[in-house]
Structure formats: structure tokens, C-alpha cells
């Protein structure tokens, strides 16, 4: 990525402010479109009947930042982006908490939407995060979904 934007990558326990993060991408005179996606903790776990008490997110410090930076660079190589932000939280999260966000900025909306979708698809299956759902019945590691893996196929040229 010789001329692409420097991606903003944040991996932290702390929450983030969506407005502030979107605002960071609005400063370029050439930026006509900013797309943001936010992921939140649902209160009903995937396979359980009991409602979620909290979620624990584990990650691989070092590799996580590398993987996210690499994804952001790939996105900037495929689409003419003026900015890319990826934020992912780890640790203990309650229902309704924000988990992560992706934001992309470009001249036009198509590139910003496509790059955001690309980043989300890669983040699901290629960034080293693991979710554990804790309910009154116990704690379960969330299984990876085949549909998430299959979603990557559409980005392979």
C-alpha cells in the first residue's frame, strides 16, 4: 500500500465513541462517503435458551494487530479509500455493549460500502478473536459458522 491511508487499528478493552470515530474520517476534502458498521452484544446467545449474562472475548495480542492492519491494507489496495478504521474490544462485555466497529471513507459510496463489507467478512474468520458466552446454564465457546467462512469466497478474484 504505497499511497493508501494509514489505517487506524485499535484493540482494547475500552469502549469507543462512534461519532468521534466517524468524524476522524471526514477531514479529507476528497472524502464524499463514510460508511460505519458497529457490532453489538445480543442478549440471546446463538444456541442457548437462557439469556446472556455476559460475553468474554479473548484475542492473540500481537497477531491481532498484525491481522487487522493487513486486512485494512488489502482493502486499501482494492478500493480507493481515504481512510480505514478497525476497532475491536476484548475482555468482558455485557448485552448491548459495542464489540467492534469498521469505518471506511472514500470519494464515492460504492467503494466505502464494499470495503466495509470486505473488512467485516475477513474480521469474522481471520482475526484471532474468540467469543465465549456466559449464561445461567454455564459458559460456551461460540462455534465458528460455515457461512462466515463461505462469505470470504466472494472476495476471491
Amino acid at each position: 500500500m504505497a499511497e493508501g491511508p494509514t489505517p487506524r487499528i485499535v484493540v482494547a478493552e475500552a469502549d469507543f465513541d462512534l461519532g468521534t470515530e466517524a468524524g476522524r474520517l471526514e477531514d479529507g476534502p476528497d472524502t464524499g462517503a463514510v460508511v460505519t458498521f458497529t457490532g453489538r452484544v445480543r442478549d440471546v446467545p446463538g444456541d442457548a435458551d437462557a439469556s446472556l449474562d455476559h460475553m468474554l472475548i479473548e484475542h492473540y495480542p500481537g497477531m491481532t494487530e498484525r491481522a487487522l492492519t493487513d486486512m485494512a491494507r488489502q482493502a486499501a489496495e482494492r478500493w480507493p479509500l481515504s481512510g480505514v478504521t478497525i476497532i475491536h474490544r476484548h475482555g468482558r462485555l455485557a448485552p448491548g455493549d459495542r464489540i467492534m466497529m469498521v469505518a471506511t471513507a472514500s470519494r464515492h459510496r460504492d467503494a466505502a460500502f464494499d470495503a466495509a463489507a470486505f473488512l467485516m467478512d475477513y474480521l469474522k474468520s481471520r482475526a484471532p478473536f474468540w467469543k465465549k458466552e456466559v449464561t445461567a446454564d454455564g459458559a460456551i465457546w461460540v462455534d465458528a459458522r460455515e457461512t462466515d467462512e463461505a462469505a470470504l469466497d466472494r472476495w476471491i478474484d
Binding site: Y60, M63, M120, K124, S125, A127, P128, W130, W141, D148
Partner: peptide
Amino acid sequence: VAFFPPMTGG
């Protein structure tokens, strides 16, 4: 070298 289950980010 690291070993882990399929990733479940996002």
C-alpha cells in the same frame, strides 16, 4: 507457534 479454534471475531 500458536494453536486455537476457528476464529469468531466481529
